[in-house]
């Protein structure tokens, strides 16, 4: 069963009398252990697509299935629960709670979902170790470098063992070599957990780490995006 399916999804923003079409009849299928790179210029609708897949935004019309469930029928409460349990999200800008340490930024996810604290601690420590952050676990975000912060965000997104992880430009704030490292790490983590993921980028060099690259221009996806590789 595919991890993510978009079927004829439209999203129109209505601002001050004018309509902005951010997603235009988008069709997309991501297999359950596939890494898809979503490549497109600024304003093409990448964040909009991720937000809809992640249950943050409801499409104007069309069907969205995550793990076989139609999330467009979810109530606000169900969407909140869906975000807590089924998806991981690395946002374009703010990803960490400034008054929590690196480790606590992972643990807070478990607090939200109500995971037993022993299981949560074990999972957080494993992730921090895999991400090379064990010596940074007790540091606050302000005491971390940009690359380290991004790695903590990846750990946070994986904390709830999601079936789908969404990365919104995870390397844009990093230089190329650091960006490559982070992409490598994402690949390792995601593949090791058989989790599907969509990685948004506008840097073609980063697409090498994905299984498949899909282009988006003016809210329109490649014609073949609905066929998994």
């Amino acid at each position: 069963m595919p991890a993510l399916e978009f079927h004829e999804v439209n999203k129109t923003y209505r601002t001050g009398g004018t309509d902005i079409v951010a997603l235009d009849h988008a069709n997309l299928t991501v297999d359950d252990d596939e890494i898809v790179a979503l490549l497109g210029p600024s304003g093409s609708g990448k964040t909009t697509l991720l937000s809809i897949a992640g249950g943050l935004l409801t499409p104007t019309n069309g069907a969205v299935h995550v793990g076989g469930n139609d999330i467009t029928s979810y109530s606000a409460k169900e969407l909140t629960q869906f975000r807590a349990r089924s998806v991981g999200f690395v946002f374009q800008t703010v990803n960490l709670v400034p008054f929590l340490t690196a480790r606590e930024n992972l643990l807070v996810v478990a607090r939200i979902t109500g995971l037993p604290s022993k299981t949560a601690a074990r999972r957080a420590d494993t992730l921090l170790k895999e991400l090379g952050l064990d010596h940074r676990a007790q540091n606050l975000p302000t005491q971390l470098s940009g690359g380290e912060r991004q790695r903590v965000a990846i750990g946070r997104a994986l904390m709830n063992e999601p079936e789908l992880v969404l990365f919104d430009e995870p390397t844009s704030a990093l230089d190329t070599s650091l960006g490559e490292q982070v992409m490598e790490l994402i690949r390792k983590e995601v593949k090791g957990r058989e989790t599907a993921s969509v990685i948004v980028t506008h840097d073609t060099r980063m697409t090498a780490h994905a299984d498949r690259t899909i282009h988006i221009v003016d809210g329109r996806l490649d014609a073949g995006a609905a066929q998994p590789a």
């Binding site: 629960q81 703010v94 990803n95 709830n160």
Partner: peptide, 18 residues
């Protein structure tokens, strides 16, 4: 002052009540 982290927590699934 902490509107951003609160928004982040809501986005990663924290209910309002939390």
């Amino acid at each position: 002052q902490k509107a951003r982290p609160l928004t982040l927590l809501r986005a990663v699934g924290a209910p309002r009540a939390f």
